[in-house]
Design a protein around this nucleic acid. Structure first.
Length: 727
DNA sequence: ACGGCACGGGG
DNA sequence: GTGTACGTGCCGT
């Protein structure tokens, strides 16, 4: 019988692995043996002593082996230690580490996931098609068009009695299963839910906020009736602790994951990958990383690429160095910038331009890593002291003999993404390919950042520097080629160029692509595009522009309408103004349209002053980066947090607050803002008018309408209207 | 004037 | 279990 690997986890009592397969006939549970090993590298005498010490505490069977302990290195003698008690692995490692004192022992394969360990050991992988009798792999993780099982999904949602923010103390009103509503006494609803899940036997349960609320809430309500609600295929769930952590340049809050056994719980809100690329993207990630679907659904793309690197290293015979937890161990500001000048940026020509080509390199940074063999072990390697391959500007040597780990991992990812993108119009599976491509895109984006991340397993800052150095070199030389072909370079940033001119842009792209071996493609042709100035200096801002493509599509970057903390009314204003400006087909018409676009601004101001704007258009949503008491400055967010606190709700760093400004001048929390979900109808009309004016000025400041002039114009008109009620 | 604080990008 | 960097603008002190 054949089936797909749906779930895999250790049974900590039996010290065996549990694997669930999805077969056309249903789910199958299999138990298998595996002894995990940890490895220690040190001098021969110390290892001999260690083996003796281990035997004294009952750890037997440690043997000496030859293994690779670092990338691209020769094999060394290590002690392989079998760990028969799964649960003791971490503490055994800590014990050995402490015996070693200061750096006497280097430990390996300590923080490897058990599922990944098992798959690598057995030659299986998550979502891979497997012969269940004998546990033989029938699939290949590199396959591009692979068979996918039909997974039965179940939508779970709940309604809670009471208003405001739901809490664990509010009784359950109803449960909805695939849209079917179960209500009545709480205990019978919970009973019914359990039996429905049992009868339906879904492979995947989808929730919104299942991790942060729904699942722990249902469990809690059940316990009040002396019940144990079981939603998995096997008893017990796998929970962890919630935490706030620093990622993507900001603090986010991650609630504890609520994982089932033998069945997949996907919390749509907790899964970045699912949100971006759906189940097809998640399955693609699961196969490539060898991490079970449910687990991969909670990971970041960075963890996926990291897992793929581990897989590749282990397959290449390497041991994985233990990275002991170093929380809050972030880089100091100065350390990195010293040698890193980031991506190259041309100073954009402020104002409106027409007949503009936007050109983009295809996955520039990952392509550079592959094309120039950038990897932690290939930079300044000892095997190529006379390498002819030198990183521009900084002069590092790159290995010419062996392909690095990072390029090895990236080649199939880049290739898959290219193939999936080319098949996105397939009538039957086009959408699936598109979603897989999107998941891969994210993995590629984060792979670059990971090379500069100090806690990454295979990070090395010199990689980061080399990639950006090659990137600058490529962009500068591409701009020069473009100028040589008669184009004017208006702006360039990291992997994009904006050119003005009537030459053959397609041919230019071909020429540059073949020059560097990295594809440069036309992103679009603009009827007009506006590069915005920096408010304080007036010089071109690097990443703020808006433009109209030939097909009528607007492309916006960096302006208020793109920001998540912009209230809807300001977003609407900017989009209305932009649609108005879209009537223009070239720069000259654009300039003629500007004065009329100000009438849009007046409409919004009048509507706000009328006092009838619904508060959901005024809500400002903001992420908080710390706890209430940790804020040193009083501001809107603090006012909102304080109100919530006084009502009994405390937020974690990384969670968002939503509020409306009621009296923005006030320094009293309760007067200054009203906070969701306790919004009233009141709002600070003049403050929102000011925001609307700022939004307009952001678009029009290069054309004679800076903020202060829009204000002045408003004052004049407002006064006229106030003194002449007949208008 | 300066520091605190939050957001973008990539698709 | 957690990508990097900076640029940008607003607001409070």
């Amino acid at each position: 019988m054949r089936g797909w690997v749906l779930d895999c986890y250790p049974d900590l009592d039996a010290n065996r692995m549990v694997i669930w397969f999805k077969t056309p006939g249903g789910a199958v549970r299999v138990v298998d043996d595996m002894t995990p090993y940890i490895y220690v590298c040190s001098s021969r005498e110390r290892l001999r002593k260690l083996a003796g010490d281990l035997a004294m505490i009952g750890v037997r069977g440690a043997v000496s082996e030859m293994r690779r302990t670092s990338l691209g290195d020769k094999e060394r003698e290590v002690l392989a230690i079998p760990v028969r008690e799964y649960a003791s692995l971490q503490s055994l490692a800590t014990t050995i580490d402490s015996w070693g004192g200061y750096r006497e022992y280097a430990l390996y394969n300590v923080d490897l996931r058990m599922d990944q360990r098992y798959f690598l050991f057995k030659g299986l992988f998550a979502m891979g098609l497997t012969e269940i009798d004998g546990l033989k792999n029938m699939d290949a993780w590199k396959r591009i068009d692979y068979p996918v099982p039909e997974l039965k999904g179940l939508e779970l949602d709940i309604k809670v009695r009471g208003d405001g923010v739901p809490t664990m103390d509010d009784p359950l009103m109803s449960v909805s299963v695939n849209g079917e509503v179960l209500d009545g006494p709480e205990d019978s609803v919970l009973d019914e839910l359990a039996s429905m899940v049992r009868d339906e036997d879904p492979d995947v349960i989808y929730t919104e906020k299942g991790d942060s609320f729904v699942m722990p809430y249902l469990q809690h309500r059940a316990s009040l009736h002396g019940m144990k609600l079981e939603l998995g295929r096997e008893e017990g769930e796998r929970t962890s602790r919630g935490k706030s952590y620093f990622t993507y340049g900001r603090i986010v809050y991650k609630p504890p994951a609520y994982k089932l056994r033998g069945r997949v719980h996907i919390d749509r809100e907790a899964s970045f990958i699912y949100g971006e690329s759906g189940l097809p993207g998640l399955i693609e990630m699961s196969r490539l990383s060898h991490i079970p679907l449910q687990d991969v659904s909670r990971l970041s793309p960075g963890s996926v690429i990291s897992a793929m690197q581990v897989n590749e290293a282990v397959r290449g015979g390497h041991l994985i160095r233990w990275k002991k937890n170093r929380p809050e161990d972030f880089k100091t500001a100065g350390a990195l910038i010293a040698c890193d000048r980031g991506g190259f940026i041309y100073e954009p020509r402020v104002g409106v331009h027409d007949d503009v080509w936007g050109l983009d390199f295809f996955s520039l940074y990952p392509s550079i890593m592959v094309r120039y063999n950038i990897s932690p072990e290939t930079l300044n390697c000892t095997c190529c002291p006379r390498s002819s391959r030198i990183v521009p500007e900084i002069g590092y040597r790159v290995c010419e003999k062996r392909t690095g780990l990072i390029p090895t991992v990236l080649v199939p990812i880049l290739n898959r993404r290219k193939v999936y993108k080319s098949m996105k119009h397939d009538p039957r599976k086009g959408v699936i390919y598109q979603q897989r491509a999107k998941a891969l895109k994210w993995v590629l984006v984060t792979c670059f950042g990971y090379t500069g991340y100090r806690n990454a397993r295979f990070g090395r800052i010199e990689c980061h520097e080399s990639i950006t150095a090659y990137g600058r070199d490529i962009l500068v030389r591409s701009a020069a080629i473009a100028e040589g072909r008669g184009f004017e370079v208006l702006h360039g940033i990291v992997d994009s160029l904006w050119l003005h001119g009537s030459g053959d842009a397609g041919r230019l792209c071909d020429e540059i692509s073949s020059e560097f071996g990295i594809t440069l493609a036309i992103e679009g042709h603009y009827r007009w595009i506006v590069f915005l100035p920096n408010v304080s200096t007036g010089v071109g801002a690097l990443n703020r522009y808006y433009g109209l493509l030939d097909d009528g599509e607007l492309k916006l970057r960096g302006i208020a309408a793109r920001r998540k903390d912009t209230p809807a009314i300001v977003e609407e204003l900017q989009l209305d103004m932009l649609h108005f400006l879209s009537r223009a087909h070239d720069a000259e018409q654009f300039m003629e349209t500007v004065p009329e676009s100000l009438e849009v601004v007046d409409r919004y101001a009048a509507e706000l002053r009328g006092g009838e704007v619904s508060t959901d258009r005024l809500v400002i949503r903001r992420r908080i980066s710390r706890r209430l008491e940790e804020y040193s400055q009083f501001n809107d967010s603090v006012a909102a947090l304080r109100q919530l606190h006084e009502r009994g709700f405390d937020l974690e760093p990384g969670q968002s607050i939503e509020y409306v400004m009621v009296d923005s001048e006030s320094d009293r929390s309760w007067e200054r803002v009203s906070v969701a979900p306790f919004l009233g109808h009141e709002y600070d009309a003049e403050k929102y008018v000011e925001l609307v004016h700022r939004g307009a000025a952001e678009l029009l400041s290069p054309f004679g309408w800076p903020f202060h002039r829009i204000r002045e114009r408003d004052r004049l008109r407002h006064r006229d209207r106030a003194s002449d009620p007949g208008r």
